[in-house]
């Protein structure tokens, strides 16, 4: 079993067909355990029960960045190694990444509501995630704008890599912009010193969500491969002359 074997879409399909049920099962188990542990976790002395949003928010926020990393690797695969599955992986990851980012934003603003008294605060972290969300949407728009996937792939790969280089710069600028305008009155979410009672459910949830991503990503890649097969079959049918 090497990377070369995986490069063959047919082999990829048959392999993932065997792996996916197990992955889905493991994901469900971990998320159930994580949710149970989160529900059992004590309330925070300051934030009360709202702290439990953290168990959903933090994994989503972590995945929102992780998925971009996966897409950057896939973009390298497209541009440098011309791996046949790389642009499939990149295309399939974008909507999932956008969904995780969206959930991070929603849970973040729900968490912020009791803290700030408003659903949205131009907090440095939330703002950075919002920009990340916009970049995901732009990438999806790019994929959708071009009908031929192999042509869209290179453009999307370049944009993904530029985004990967730009993200730290954006993060830094937003932090600077935010501190310039806002004295440190905003609640720092999470914080470095986390009690064990919180840490373990958070880790379980983080692993559960990561597995969820892998499951969804493999399933989406299968869909994309099948969609491309349908497309080439249709093109073959179009070029067939009627008898």
């Amino acid at each position: 079993m090497t990377l070369i074997d995986l490069a063959n879409p047919t082999r990829f399909l048959s392999l993932t067909a065997r792996v996916l049920p197990w992955l889905a099962g493991a994901t469900t188990m971990l998320l159930l355990v994580g949710l149970y542990q989160s529900a059992m976790a004590p309330d925070d002395y300051q934030q009360g029960a709202t702290v439990k949003i953290m168990f959903v928010h933090v994994p989503n926020a972590w995945l929102s960045m992780f998925v971009w990393g996966v897409m950057s690797l896939a973009a390298l695969g497209t541009l440098v190694w011309r791996h046949p599955l790389a642009d499939v992986a990149a295309k399939a990851a974008a909507p999932i990444g956008a969904a995780f980012t969206f959930l991070a934003l929603v849970t973040g603003s729900l968490w912020g509501r009791p803290m700030w008294g408003t659903y949205w605060e131009w907090d440095a972290r939330l703002t950075s995630v919002l920009i990340l969300f916009l970049m995901y949407l732009g990438l999806i728009a790019l994929w959708r704008a071009v009908e031929d996937p192999s042509r869209a792939a290179r453009a999307a790969a370049i944009l993904t890599l530029v985004g990967a280089i730009n993200l730290p710069i954006i993060k830094f600028s937003v932090d600077w912009w935010n501190t310039l305008h806002q004295p440190a009155s905003v609640l720092r979410m999470g914080g470095p010193s986390l009690d064990r009672a919180f840490l373990i459910p958070l880790l379980v949830m983080a692993i559960g969500f990561s597995l969820l991503f892998v499951t969804l990503h493999l399933a989406a890649m299968r869909n994309e491969i099948l969609r491309r097969r349908v497309r080439s079959l249709q093109m073959m049918q179009a070029s067939r002359q009627a008898a």
Binding site: I131, L134, A141
Partner: peptide, 20 residues
């Protein structure tokens, strides 16, 4: 949907110019 995306982006840009 690109129009909506543009709308969203322009709106998000404003606070960076005006301040939060």
């Amino acid at each position: 949907l690109i129009g909506v995306l543009f709308f969203l982006t322009v709106t998000v840009l404003m606070p960076f110019a005006i301040g939060p």
